[in-house]
Every structure is written in structure tokens, then in C-alpha cells.
Write a protein that binds this DNA or RNA. Structure first.
Lengths: 263, 263
DNA sequence: TCAAAAGTGTTTCCAATACACCCATGA
DNA sequence: TCATGGGTGTATTGGAAACACTTTTGA
């Protein structure tokens, strides 16, 4: 799906994809204290979609998800996990107005001579497995795919109109994140290498959707013994400067097996 | 898949199933203090499989899983949840000896005139979504499907040879059960209506794979406030008779939303 | 010297754990 | 009356939570 002329290329290789199967990636990033999700905007219309793709016949699904992630962000070896499969009869392109408009737009982009292929492919019932990825926003260099005008971070509290059931997929991903918070590499994946304890706390708060006590958070985290302490961060503000910390890979991974145990 | 002559019927309706998509049900039951899983044995050979099926074009996947559950056990309105989707390139019928033998057996059962349909169907790459169900063993009346000789409970510690990646699927289901124990209706679904605290404790122990303290378990459970106390169970043994308890539906459901909080 | 935020201390409460003790049951 | 297992009591420990106090920073 990555050539300049996607449609020709896709149609040429249409037989190399598993029919009726797709995958969607909910890629979370954390910026300005707010959780964001990476979305693509279709050409000319104000309808957005999750990055995703189809499954090549000879490829593992997780590998295909990894490719999507790499093509949109340039990042590799990122935390990525399957979290749910969406197969509802109501998720098709004709089930809501945003999807119908997007489908018409896509169809216009398709070469005249391949309209039949378009129809038979997009009228299939699709079973889509959704993946969750956690990345550091400042490391990603975003690239739209050939169906899309642009690729942007959108705060989870202000989602635009989305195709298909992508809104539901994002909601499910958020819930998964919340429930699994103690078993996912939240801090390591979403924050830059060095960060302050307050930044980490804000991240937890934005996922758990509740306030945490500053003092208790700091003590609890530091007692986990997974942090390396660095220099202070001098912001120029007229208050005590916080220390920067980074996460020690090895002890963090060991701890994740048991669960970090934050409630 | 439930007619007397499955193959004819299935072939007749082959166009009504989503190609390349299947579902498997890991149905857990608890008997004699041991967790069991429901398995089907193919005709004439000692190879077993999870109950499963294909997805009718016009049916929700969960509904299809419900049908599988109903057809094998006669039970309806059972706890049932999707937990993972299996799509590996290595899960096909030709990837291990048990599966190859089972496939040959199935092919022999197929009518001569439909061999081509058999091949094109079973040589597809299948994406299978796995469901977890929890049932009360004594309420189920087991029925084999048309591919199988019998349908039996097998203790999870002594699994027979299984087709495809069904062993992996069961392992993943067990892990899901363990991790999610506080958010699944373990007691309500797996035990009979009335049970003793020791029985409940044994169930938890068999899932968590560790011993729990008798006194603490009893107190902790009763403090949850979800049990109705009934008469004592007179076993005839020469010791104090334990009380029987049942679970109050409403307060149990409320509690599950928060998590029962057993570690 | 002041406000603001970081860092640390203190107190209270409750869950988890370990283990002891008494009670009911039928042989 | 005895062995066996059920039910309950108790002491200890440690984490969670609430909040107070001290320190650092730049205006």
C-alpha cells in the first residue's frame, strides 16, 4: 500500500492479500500532558481513519501491523499488541454516513477499468484485528498513506469523525490501556528518555482518568527501583527544580512480568 | 454444521460462510476439583480438537460462538468472551502430524464429487478468533458434531494430541483466565448453584496454581457481601459440616465491574 | 522575602498473611 | 471421647491515602 500509485499497485497485487481480513493500529502518543492517537485524513473530505492495512498471504499479522506502524511513523521495535478483533455486521462501509462518503471518495480515486475489483473488494465483509502501539511522539516522523491527505496526532478527548467502527476501536483500546496499565510499558514507551516524576504522574492520570497524590506517587514509583536519577531540570520557573529520571530497561522488564501494581 | 449429513449440507451452503474465517471455543468446566476443557475427538483417530465452526455471512461472530456452545452443551446465556485471534502461518492443517492425519480423515468422509470444494476450503489460510466460555459441568449435555466421534471433558493437566494450534489456544485461554480472574464470573459460572467455601477456594487455587490460606479465603470472600447463606452440607463424614452458599446475582455483577480484587 | 513547586515526613487505616483456638460431626 | 475439618479470633506487617512540613528556585 506504499507506492506512489497505490491503486494500480494494490490492484495488481490484490491476489496476494487475504480476502476479508484487515488490521487496524491504534497508535498512542503522549504530548503536552494529553494522550493522542494517530489518525489519517482522507483526501478532500473531513473524515478520518486509523492507520491500517490488509494482510499479505505470506505474512504474520503482527508483522503486517509492524509494517503499518513503520510506514506511518518510521519507528521499529515498538511495543505492539493485538487487543481485540472486530467483525460486526454493522462495521461495513455502508453502515454510516462518514463511511459512505469516504467510500465514494476512494472509488473516485480508483481507475475506471478497475471499478469491478474495487466493488468486490470493498463490498466484502471485513474481519479486522486491532493492535495497540505505544510510541514516543518526538521520535516519530509521520507519513500519510496513499489514500490520505495527512497523518496527525489527535487528542483522545477531541476525536474527529471516523470511518467504519474506528471510534469504537479507539474506545476499546483506551479501555484496554486502562485495565492493563500495570502490565504495559506505559512510561518507557510513551515518555522521552528523561522525564520528571510529575510528567510520569500526569501520564498515569490521563490514562486512569483520576487525580493521584503527588507525594505518594513519587515515593511509590521510586521504591520500585527501576529508575536512574539524572540532573535537575532547570525550567527557569521560580520554584524548586525537579530531578530527571530514566527507566532502567532490565529491571523494568522484570517488574512488568509481575505487574507494577498501581491502582 | 449440525445436520445429520454434515458434508453435503455444508457444501451446499459453503457460499454462506465467510471464507478464511473461523472461531474456536475454549469451554471450561470444573469437576472433582479439577479444571476441564471440552474437546471433540475425530472419528477413528486419536486426535482431538476444540469445538468451533465457521462464520455465516449474515451472523455476528459472538452469535456463531454461542451456537457452537449451544450445539455442544445444550446451554444458552452462558458467559462467553472473545480473548484472542489466531492467524499464524504455522497453524494450518499441514503444519503438524496430528493435523495432517485429521485432515486426511476428514477428506475421506467428504463425498467424491466434492473433493475440489474440500481442497479449496481447507487449503485456505484461516484466521480464527478464540472465545472463552465458563459453564457448569452438571448442566451440560454433551453432543459431538458431525466430524467427531465423541465430546468429552478433559482435565487441563492431561491434554490429548490436538489439531492445528489448539493446544496453544487452550494455554492462552488458561492464561487469560488467570490474569482476568478478578474480572470474570468464575464462581458463578463454574460452580453449581450451591457450594461450600472450600469448593470455591479449590477452584481459585486450580486457576491461580497456588495454595491459599483457608481462614483468610473464607473471611475475604464473605466480606464481599455477595453470598446468600444456606443450610449445612451433611456429608456423613465425622467432622463439622460446612455451610452452603450461593451467589447473589445483582451484587455479584456490581462487584465484577470493580474487580473482586483477589491476588 | 515571597510564591510556587519539589521533596520528604507523619499519621491513620485497612488488606494481606500467618497461625491459633474453639466448635460441630460421626465413628 | 477422639480425630477431622469448619468457623472465627488475633497479632503482625506493609501498603494506600491524606496531609503537613521543609527545601529549592527565580522573581
Amino acid at each position: 500500500m506504499e507506492s506512489k500509485n497505490l491503486t494500480e499497485d494494490f490492484i495488481k497485487h490484490i491476489k496476494t492479500y487475504v480476502p476479508g481480513v484487515s488490521l487496524d493500529c491504534v497508535i498512542f502518543g503522549y504530548r503536552n500532558g494529553v494522550l493522542h492517537v494517530l489518525l489519517l485524513k482522507y483526501f478532500d473530505i473531513n473524515v478520518w481513519a486509523l492507520p491500517g492495512g490488509f494482510l499479505p498471504n505470506d505474512m504474520e499479522m503482527k508483522e503486517a501491523a509492524n509494517d503499518v506502524l513503520f510506514n506511518r511513523t518510521g519507528l521499529q521495535e515498538i511495543f505492539l499488541t493485538q487487543f481485540q478483533t472486530f467483525s460486526s455486521l454493522n462495521r461495513g462501509w455502508d453502515k454510516n454516513i462518514q463511511s459512505r462518503v469516504a467510500k465514494e471518495k476512494l472509488q473516485l480515486m480508483w481507475p475506471k477499468k478497475h471499478q469491478e475489483e474495487f466493488k468486490s473488494w470493498f463490498n466484502q465483509r471485513f474481519i479486522s484485528t486491532a493492535y495497540l502501539a505505544l510510541i514516543q511522539v518526538d521520535k516519530a516522523s509521520l507519513t500519510a498513506d496513499d489514500l490520505s491527505e495527512c497523518c496527525e496526532w489527535k487528542p483522545i478527548s477531541e476525536l474527529p469523525d471516523l470511518v467504519l467502527d474506528h471510534k469504537l476501536i479507539i474506545e476499546m483500546a483506551l479501555n484496554y490501556l486502562k485495565v492493563q496499565i500495570n502490565y504495559l510499558p506505559i512510561g518507557k514507551s510513551l515518555l522521552p528518555y528523561k522525564f520528571t516524576m510529575l510528567e510520569l504522574q500526569k501520564l498515569y492520570e490521563s490514562i486512569l482518568q483520576k487525580r493521584l497524590d503527588r507525594g505518594n506517587f513519587q515515593r511509590k514509583m521510586l521504591k520500585l527501583g527501576i529508575f536512574d536519577k539524572h540532573e535537575k531540570l532547570m525550567t527557569g520557573a521560580s520554584n524548586k527544580a525537579p530531578f530527571l529520571y530514566s527507566i532502567d530497561e532490565e529491571s523494568y522488564n522484570n517488574l512488568l512480568l509481575e505487574g507494577i501494581g498501581f491502582r
